[in-house]
């Protein structure tokens, strides 16, 4: 799939996500809009996954460690065919499979239950280790938020991945510079992230996390450096694609009113490739 088509899908995912947040009256719209391009590239260009056989042993694995943006993952999984598209309308409804954080036992395509931050990368290290033990070629991708990197468990896993030489593991940090209540810079400023990961023995690359050409290029298997886990610092904007949400800390999990919803939807439609 070419990058134009990926941008078309990403735009559609953003609109469906926005609609679901508006209708459900909840969600984490800011972080969902920042991670959408990354998820779209992974599921439609990079990863080998089969919606008809979601537990195929040789599949590539994605762990959305920033589990609060589950809705973006659900919409992408629906686009890919793992779950019915009309099921997105059940988001957060009683007994829906689609609760606020992803659940592997309920939603095909989800690999591990996330929600509390700092869980995905250790699990990803285990997955990548299993692939090494199996002499298998499948890859493991973990997406964390940048604020999430404040969790110490991530740094335990970062040390492990380097020690274990897990070049089949890719960590993508959705670096939108905002956490729930404030800017990272005003809370516990981890930036710049790249030299920190490099100091721990990782191969690090920085990209524009909304530039589909850059995303696809950096995630290509040809970019793997033998013996080193890869970290991609994806510079993104929380709320990307909607002018009044973008880079605005107020939109971590705020729900648009009808006027805001209509404006946001209009902007996204006008931006459609």
């Amino acid at each position: 799939m070419n990058t134009h088509d990926l941008r078309v899908i990403a735009n559609r995912v953003r609109r469906r996500d926005l609609q679901a947040v508006f209708e459900a009256g909840a969600g984490h719209i800011g972080g969902e809009l920042s991670v959408t391009d990354l998820l779209t590239a992974l599921y439609f260009k990079i990863m080998s996954v089969d919606p008809a056989n979601p537990r195929a042993p040789e599949r590539d694995r994605l762990v959305l460690s920033k589990g609060h943006t589950a809705l973006a993952l659900y919409v992408v999984l629906a686009e890919k065919g793992f779950i019915p598209k009309d099921e997105i309308a059940t988001f957060l409804k009683p007994h829906s499979r689609l609760n606020g954080h992803p659940n592997r036992t309920k939603v095909p395509g989800v690999e591990t239950n996330t929600g509390p931050l700092g869980h995905g990368l250790p699990v990803g290290v285990g997955m990548a280790t299993a692939a090494k033990l199996n002499r298998a070629n499948w890859r493991t991708f973990v997406i964390t938020g940048d604020g999430e990197m404040q969790e110490g468990s991530n740094w335990e896993a970062i040390m492990s991945a380097a020690q274990l030489k897990l070049d089949n593991l890719t960590l993508i940090i959705d670096h939108n510079r905002l956490q729930q209540g404030a800017r990272l810079a005003d809370t516990n400023d981890l930036a710049p992230l790249a030299p920190k990961l490099a100091a721990f023995g990782w191969d690090v690359q920085e990209i524009d996390g909304h530039n589909m050409d850059q995303i696809c290029a950096v995630l290509d298997a040809g970019q793997i450096v033998t013996g080193k886990p890869k970290c991609i610092v994806a510079h993104t904007n929380k709320g990307h694609g909607v002018s009044f949400m973008s880079d605005n800390v107020a939109w971590h999990h705020k729900v648009p009113n009808e006027e805001q919803y209509n404006q946001a939807m209009t902007e996204l439609k006008e931006a459609a490739p």
Partner: peptide, 14 residues
């Protein structure tokens, strides 16, 4: 913490 997460990931990988 990493130890238990790694265990879960290994189980995911069979």
């Amino acid at each position: 913490q990493n130890m238990v997460g790694v265990g879960a990931g290994l189980a995911n990988g069979g």
